[in-house]
């Protein structure tokens, strides 16, 4: 009897222990699998959120371009035409010759400014003649600023790429050149564009203070210009890299490959 009780006790201990161990292992495995599923779901949500953000940004850029186009056309067609008409009718005004000349000069100045603003908003030359010609024209305009010396080189086949790609590259170049003018304290800027059937390669090199986007991460106000650049390049599925040059300056490289987009 005593032996029987002893064996029963032994069985209880073994079974109880095995049961508890299996239960504990079940708990650990359950938590492990559950956590992995949670992380996977979180990652999926994050990816969806990122995708949504990208799409939103794309929509914003597109809307902005459409609005700029509308304003550019109205400026050119409405305001520009009106100013031109006024300029032509000045000759019939019965005012002093000096005042007439002054009025003509101011009107000519206003017409010039309207054309420039209209062109900045909608570079028609980009649509008609392509990126290389548009950039050449842009640099020619910027060269009026004697503080900076611009050099532009174009290499490769004279190939046209999709309109949105050329527009994105043009806008990014505008932003980069604007930033160099405002912040870099540079004296020389070199722009190179290489086009081929496979894609597009743009390089902007300056001899300024040197810059990379990481320098701006900790600032309270995030750089909208940089975000704009990143978004535009992402939209066309291109790549952009920033390098600090030695002894000073920055090199920005933009790469777009046709097959990656397709």
């Amino acid at each position: 009897m005593d032996e029987q009780q002893t064996l029963d006790l032994g069985t209880v201990v073994i079974l109880g222990t095995m049961g508890m161990i299996i239960l504990a292992m079940g708990v650990v495995v359950f938590f492990f699998i559950y956590q992995r599923r949670m992380i996977a779901k979180q990652n999926e949500l994050t990816m969806l959120e990122l995708q949504h953000q990208k799409e939103l940004m794309g929509a914003v850029i597109q809307t902005k371009e459409l609005e700029q186009r509308r304003i550019a056309l109205e400026l050119h067609d409405d305001v520009g035409s009106t100013l031109t008409a006024i300029k032509f009718s000045v000759s019939s005004f019965t005012i002093d010759h000096k005042d007439k000349e002054l009025l003509n000069n101011n009107l000519a100045d206003a017409i010039q400014k309207v054309r420039r603003i209209s062109n900045d908003l909608l570079p028609s030359i980009l649509e008609e003649l392509g990126l290389v010609t548009a950039v050449k024209s842009l640099i020619k305009t910027l060269s009026d600023n004697r503080a900076l010396t611009y050099v532009f080189e174009a290499y490769g086949d004279q190939v046209r790429h999709p309109k949105d790609v050329e527009l994105a590259c043009y806008r990014v170049l505008q932003e980069l050149l604007n930033n160099i003018l405002k912040y870099a304290h540079a004296t020389n800027v070199r722009v190179e564009i290489t086009t081929s059937l496979e894609g597009l390669h743009v390089a902007v090199v300056d001899d300024g203070d040197g810059f990379t986007p990481i320098d701006h991460i900790d600032r309270e106000r995030p750089s909208l210009g940089l975000k704009n650049i990143e978004s535009r390049i992402q939209q066309i599925k291109g790549d952009i890299t920033y390098e600090k040059r030695l002894p000073k300056g920055t090199k920005v490289l933009i790469d777009w490959k046709r097959h990656e987009r397709d």
């Binding site: 009780q5 032994g10 201990v13 222990t17 161990i21 292992m25």
Partner: peptide, 30 residues
């Protein structure tokens, strides 16, 4: 968790097990 779950039953009957030394196995092997 596994250690304390595994030794839980053994600890409940600990003193009793010490008195009975013929369980067919050594409980403390667990």
């Amino acid at each position: 968790l596994l250690f304390f779950a595994g030794t839980f039953f053994m600890n409940i009957v600990g003193q009793l097990v010490l008195q009975k030394n013929n369980l067919g196995f050594n409980v403390y092997d667990i």
